[in-house]
Write a protein that binds this DNA or RNA. Structure first.
Length: 268
DNA sequence: TGTATTTGACCCAC
DNA sequence: GTGGGTCAAATACA
C-alpha cells in the first residue's frame, strides 16, 4: 500500500473506515440490545454514507450521494404474512389462482435511480401492471429462489419520471436464500447498459488491498425514506409524461438487490 | 428442451 | 366496484 498513489491510499483508508462502521452497524442489527455505548444505527449509517461519499470524491467519481442520494432503511417488524400463509395453507383458497392478501404494511425500502438497479440477487419477473395515474407500468419481481429455498423477497420497479429518467425500486420482504459467494458483499452496483457497475466489497476476510471498485460512474441514486406503511395507492406521485416508451429497459434488468435495503445485508 | 418473460385472468383489500 | 398483487398458460429465447 505504500506504493499506492496518495489519493488511492486515502480512498482505501476511507473504505476501511466505512467497513468498520458497517461492521458496527451489523453488530447493532444482529444484537439491538447490545452495548449501550454503541452509536445508533442512524449514526452508523450516516458514517457509512459519508465514507462512501469521501471515497468517491477521492477517486474523482461524480459525487451524487451527498445531494441526490439519501439513505435510510427500516427494519420494521414485518407484517406477518406468515399468518396469512398459514391461513392459506389451511384453506382451499390457497389453491386458487391469484389468491393473496394485499400488502398494507411491510418491511420495505425504496430506491430511486436513473437506471434500473442491479443488486446481485437473481430476480424473476412475474407480473406487470398499468397503475392508475402512472405513466409507466409497474413491474413485479420475485426472488428466483422463491420455490427452491422459500425466499419471499420481492421487489417492484417502476419508471416514475421521464426527464431525467428515474426508476423507483421498492423492495419487500427479506431474502432468505443463500447467495453463497455474495453473502458477505455489499454491492453498490448500478449496472445498466449505460452505467457500468460500481462494486465495493466489505468482506472482512478480504485484504484491504483487494478492495476494489471500478472507476466508472454509477447513476445517481436516491434511497428514500422507508415507509412504515406503504400506501395502497401511490397515485399522484408520478410525473405524467406525454411520452410513452414501449421499450422498457426494466425488462432487461433481472438481477439485483440493493444491499442498502433491509434485506440480506447482514446474514439474516 | 429447459428456462425466463409476457400477459390476461383471478382474487381480495379498500 | 375498482385497483393492485399474484398466478399460470402461452410464448420467446438461448
Amino acid at each position: 500500500m505504500e506504493n499506492l498513489p496518495s489519493d488511492r491510499r486515502k480512498a482505501i483508508e476511507e473504505l476501511e473506515r466505512g467497513r468498520d462502521f458497517a461492521s458496527q452497524l451489523r453488530r447493532l442489527v444482529l444484537n439491538p440490545a447490545g452495548d449501550v455505548t454503541t452509536p445508533s444505527a442512524r449514526d452508523l449509517a450516516d458514517e457509512v454514507v459519508t465514507s462512501f461519499s469521501n471515497t468517491l470524491l477521492l477517486l474523482n467519481l461524480p459525487s451524487h450521494d451527498s445531494q441526490t442520494q439519501q439513505y435510510s432503511s427500516c427494519v420494521l417488524p414485518a407484517k406477518s404474512d406468515d399468518s396469512e400463509d398459514s391461513c392459506k395453507s389451511t384453506s382451499a383458497v390457497r389453491e386458487r389462482r391469484g389468491s393473496y392478501k394485499r400488502r398494507r404494511t411491510s418491511q420495505s425500502s425504496e430506491i430511486d435511480s436513473e437506471a434500473p438497479i442491479d443488486d446481485g440477487h437473481a430476480w424473476r419477473k412475474y407480473g406487470q401492471k398499468n397503475i392508475m395515474n402512472a405513466p409507466y407500468p409497474r413491474n413485479y419481481f420475485r426472488c428466483t429462489h422463491r420455490y427452491d429455498q422459500g425466499c419471499q423477497a420481492t421487489k417492484q420497479v417502476q419508471r416514475i419520471q421521464e426527464k431525467p429518467v428515474l426508476y423507483r425500486t421498492t423492495y419487500y420482504g427479506q431474502h432468505t436464500c443463500n447467495r453463497n459467494s455474495l453473502n458477505n458483499e455489499i454491492l453498490l452496483d448500478a449496472n445498466s447498459p449505460s452505467h457500468p457497475s460500481l462494486f465495493i466489497s466489505f468482506d472482512n476476510n478480504l485484504p484491504t488491498d483487494q478492495a476494489f471498485f471500478s472507476s466508472s460512474p454509477s447513476p445517481p441514486m436516491t434511497i428514500t425514506q422507508c415507509k412504515e406503511e406503504i400506501p395502497s395507492s401511490s397515485s399522484g406521485d408520478y410525473v405524467v409524461s406525454p411520452e410513452s416508451d414501449d421499450k422498457d429497459p426494466i425488462s432487461d434488468m433481472l438481477c439485483g438487490d440493493f444491499v442498502f435495503g433491509p434485506f440480506d445485508c447482514f446474514d439474516g
